[in-house]
């Protein structure tokens, strides 16, 4: 477990602002991108504040302040979650995945590669959130009994992520391509293991 020192001193003297009001610092212990972390934060902080300002995980973005745009989307125990309206203390002991954890060993995730190659990210600001929703879609797809990549499912999975640049067209294409790739790979794997068995 990493004990992370605060990188931002913002909360240290906030008790001065309203001395009459209760204010507590807590240690939030959670798994972030597979690593256990313990971070001191004010008890009323959101997960997004914790990620961005305490852990330096700047990939999750703040766009709308209050859960309307999806730029702050992370996976909480695998489910797409708006970190800007989730209390950090509420996710004690749970697994958080951010865009920083999407690739493996410095290699971009297939989604990231497809997004980059197909122009699915223009300004890139909504993209981390879109990628996390897309990753949740891929997880669901891979775990379904009869996985089929459908445009309508992709659009529905991204329904909580606003993009202002692309008109979504190239985002759909990129997710479709990554999903197809991943299904083909797992099918190939399955075929290989069947071959091995026989």
């Amino acid at each position: 477990m990493t004990e992370t020192a605060p990188v931002d001193s913002t909360f240290l003297d906030t008790t001065a602002a309203e001395p009459t009001r209760a204010r507590r610092l807590v240690i939030c212990r959670l798994q972030v991108n597979g690593e256990g972390v313990a971070v001191v934060a004010p008890v009323h902080w959101t997960l997004l504040e914790l990620l961005r300002y305490q852990l330096g995980l700047i990939g999750s973005k703040q766009g709308c302040d209050k859960g309307d745009c999806g730029a702050c989307t992370v996976l909480l125990d695998g489910k797409p979650t708006l970190s800007c309206i989730t209390l950090a203390v509420a996710v004690q002991g749970r697994c958080v995945e951010t865009v920083e954890g999407l690739g493996v060993g410095g290699e971009p995730h297939p989604l990231q590669r497809e997004f980059a190659e197909r122009g699915a990210a223009q300004c890139g600001f909504c993209t981390p959130g879109v990628l996390m929703s897309a990753a949740a879609y891929l997880d669901e797809l891979s775990s379904s009994a009869e996985p089929v990549v459908r445009q309508a499912d992709i659009a529905a999975a991204l329904g909580g992520n606003l993009c202002r640049c692309t008109g979504y067209t190239k985002i759909f294409e990129a997710v479709h391509a990554a999903a197809t790739q991943i299904l083909q790979r797992s099918k190939a794997l399955a075929d290989t293991s069947t071959d091995d068995a026989s």
């Binding site: 700047i58 951010t98 971009p108 990231q112 980059a116 190659e117 122009g119 990210a121 981390p128």
Partner: peptide, 28 residues
Amino acid sequence: RHGKHDALPLMSGIDRYTDDITLPRMLH
């Protein structure tokens, strides 16, 4: 047909937008 030159580091939490920058002793 090429991808966007700067897309990957931007979408991966590596390159920084303005609010991603924190300076020492920074006030708000």
